[in-house]
Amino acid sequence: MNKSKLGLFLLAFLLMSLSSCKQQDSNSKILINEVLVNNTDNYLDEYGMHDGWIELVNRTYKSVNIAGYQLSKITAQGDTITYVFPKGDTRTMIQAKQHILIFADANPYHGALHASFSLDTIGSNRLILADAGGQLLDEVTLPSTLGENESYARISEKANNFEVRGKTRANQVTAGSINDLKDHNAKANNFKKNDKDGVGMAITAMSVVFTGLLLLYLIFRTIGNLSVKLSKRRALRSAGLIGHKKEEDLATIPGEVFAAIATALHEAQNDVHDIESTILTINKVKRSYSPWSSKIYGLRQTPNKKSNPYKK
């Protein structure tokens, strides 16, 4: 019966766990973050060339090596060109929350971050990113209306929506950096601006500290009361006093009294400490010395108290 109850409980727990799990999002790790097709005055590659580029972002909190990953371009005619990132090149490692740029110059001999295709400045481009096993990670179709030095970028690294960038100064292309450029010390600056004397922080933080410890107090007061009641009840039950008319009175007697009575009864019943033997024999114990059994290697030195610093 107990086993079947346990089995049902485990099954219910498993079902709850499964229902609470979100479906694994295949686009959650490495994404295409920003693409610039027609580069005439933007980021230069290491050869000093203005090439179109594709920015990838690692959204995780750990480094990811994209060696073996596949970046494909599908032209308006339906032709697919795939570039596979080479293995054994350290530049394919994207650090946590960081970006890399892949230059679309159709010249992979220029390095691991140079794709084997270029982007079409006329017509649309469709880009597909897949992992080393061919599983789709991200797919972006670029609008054909992108102008010179304009990029198609996610609104932020967390967003799924894209926007055209580079048309205004306020909405610039962000090659190799975060799309949503914001104040990274916003919280501290917010406190600096709105809580100059720190009173707000003190009130908020102390409220949280008190709330936490107050909740802990309430929970353990309840648990303590329950525990005391249970232990008294157990003691009464073991003494066969449940239902006794003096049960209530007995329940108020502290545990120490029961302990003292029990000890006295035990000593009386077992004739403990009646007449002790007056003969004490001490046998000398001889042990052959060995460093393995030596206590001096296993024991700490006895603390040597010198003086009490707290004594006036």
């Binding site: 936490g212 007061r221 303590g224």
Partner: peptide, 8 residues
């Protein structure tokens, strides 16, 4: 447990 509040 009320001693917790002193710690707070």
């Amino acid at each position: 447990p009320k001693l917790m509040l002193i710690g707070a």
